[in-house]
Write a protein that binds this DNA or RNA. Structure first.
Lengths: 354, 354
DNA sequence: CATTAGCACTCATGGTATATGAGTGCTAAC
DNA sequence: GTTAGCACTCATATACCATGAGTGCTAATG
């Protein structure tokens, strides 16, 4: 006699087994394989009955009558939210990752995030991305102006953590060395410690006090900052290991699918916007196939973990790959990396030594 | 009666026609197609005779007996060096490119080169790369040190043109603000205008004069520069549009070939080293298939044009794609872009306004 | 004597028919 | 409730053949 929960339990075990096998073989899974894989000594016939139920319930489907079963998006969803238990990385692996990050965090932010996404891409064997904050989200420590030729200035903003932005500004009227020095001094005195969002309004307010003796300085400063802030993006998007996406068997069968994904990645307001929104929610987020809400990329998924600084979410790191991916390992990796990045943020603030 | 040169001429015309057709169709070219394409009213039979000669001579080959002909590496080589006449971009197109560059050259160097290779990649429909100089190859205009936390310094080097390098340096003993200022002042006074290659030896020489009152400064400066110069690469390698390489029919047939190419691109000392060497020679250089000298990438080619500053070659820009590529257009594009980049170098130096 | 029409020949490609077998659902026995 | 047995389905593989694009050779042509 079986209890209801035994019943449930077995359905779950079988769904889990199907998914895990499918993820590695990439071809529909039959009842016999599962029968052998599960140690419960159930005959293929029994498995078939349960698989039929799972299909009824919308967790599995058959490509055609005489084929094995393949998980549906709903199947993956249920697996991920209810079945899949967290995976811990081996002490050995997590040690290696920690050391690698240790080395990387000596770089400045851009190089760091670049290498971090490269690292996650290699670990997961998929494409990996990072959404990172820019100086716009911090208060700036220092502003440097370096004249380059007669009509150009390099403006370097050094923010909190290891964030740096450098932008060229073309000025219509040439500046001599003293003027540049004066502008730089003014900018630092006036703006350091102030959130970048308030910079322009603060300077504009000063500009209204027309008889300010610094009118000229303010005006030039304002122009420079307008250019710099317009050029600097809201956040940086790094993505590495894109060509891993061609390696999946499903991509080989139809390379056009990869192309479509690439098209979405190029546009900043579709996939990236979705990722940005998912960041707002707490915790790791998995988007599977249709859940991306974009037509043409139903065969892809991503796993995304936010990283934090002072509790607040400041960015995210994730893996992008075929829907048929090893979510267990991918989530473990992504979360672990996100945690390491969070640690880096703290370390950067402390300015500590290794 | 035909003269010998008529004879030669016709062979050349046919080789050229075969290559041009093959490049667009990607399938072996038969005699009838050529007969119709050439306006000389030669029958397919005659064409066949000449094609047989061309095969004899090693310029063409047949995949199998009953197929048309395909150019060999030698065929391409002869076509490129002796047959192919230079192509001029249309005034309209070259105008567009000029305007686009105009906009880009307002960026600082890294962003500029990045966008330039992106541009060439889109124009050519292939992958495009840039080898760009770094601050190591210029004299530095200014050196900035910004303390970040207690144990870290951001060191920004602003070189000639729009070259910028910023690197984090971890210092074991904390520096207070005054010390940082002193070091920065010392560095600027001592090193600006001096080629970076001489920096370390110059400082080391000073260090030997032990009773120098600035001993402490020199020592700290030396350490900082050692880290910065070790971190800064000799040159930057940008490559964009890699996924275009999957689009070629030959790549679809065997995606493994693309993988092999990627492997070579990852290693800095094989393909990139070859490109670096090719830069040393004057003028545009084309490497076809086996000429790359690397096994596994016989189906790929690149076209590379150096760009100059004050006559000297300071970098290069190129296109990487399947051996079966439109060399005529690719070379025209690459050379044109190289010229535009050379102009940018001059413009940057002048520091001029748009 | 270069050119070309004619023709037999080759061989990759594509289509059709058939065989195979993995996997299924159902039924009846355990 | 489980499962052995079995008929059934259908994608895939294999064999076979027809097609036709393209060839090289030969002999006729101007």
């Amino acid at each position: 006699m079986m209890t209801v929960s035994d019943f449930e339990q077995r359905r779950n075990d079988i769904l889990e087994a199907v998914i895990e096998v499918y993820v590695t073989t990439a071809s529909p899974v039959g009842s016999e394989l599962i029968s052998r894989k599960l140690r419960e000594n159930l005959s293929p016939a029994t498995i078939r009955n349960i698989m039929a139920e799972l299909e009824e319930a919308g967790f599995l489907e058959q490509p055609h009558t005489s084929a094995g079963r393949v998980p549906t998006d709903r199947g993956y969803r249920y697996y991920i939210t209810s079945l899949m238990e967290a995976m811990r990385l081996s002490a050995e692996e997590s040690g290696r990752l920690g050391e690698a990050i240790q080395v990387l965090q000596q770089l400045e932010a851009e190089a760091y995030f670049h290498r971090v996404s490269d690292m996650l891409s290699k670990l997961s064997g998929q494409a990996a991305f990072v959404i990172a904050p820019t100086v716009k989200h911090t208060t700036v420590r220092q502003i440097e102006l370096v004249p380059v030729g007669t009509h150009r200035l390099l403006c370097v903003l050094v923010g909190q953590e290891a964030l740096v932005a450098s932008h060229m500004v073309e000025v219509h009227e040439p500046l001599n060395r003293d003027e540049v020095g004066a502008v730089a001094h003014f900018l630092n005195a006036e703006l350091v410690g102030l959130p970048t969002q308030e910079w322009l309004s603060s300077l504009e307010r000063r500009l209204l006090a027309v008889n300010d003796s610094l009118y000229y300085l303010v005006k030039r400063s304002l122009y420079i900052l307008q250019v710099v802030l317009a050029t600097e993006p809201e956040e940086r998007f790094f993505i590495e290991g894109l060509f891993n996406l061609f390696a999946a068997p499903e991509a080989r069968r139809d390379p056009h699918k990869v192309q479509q994904l690439f098209d979405y990645l190029d546009a900043p307001d579709l996939l990236r916007e979705l990722i940005r929104q998912d960041l707002a929610r707490e915790g790791t987020r998995v988007r599977i196939g249709q859940e991306l809400g974009l037509s043409g990329v139903e065969d892809w998924s991503y796993v995304l973990s936010p990283f934090r600084h002072h509790q607040a979410v400041v960015g995210g790191i994730g893996v992008l790959g075929p829907k048929r991916m090893d979510y267990r390992r991918t989530r473990a990796l992504t979360e672990h990396m996100a945690q390491l990045v969070s640690l880096t943020m703290a370390r950067w603030e402390a300015g500590a030594e290794a």
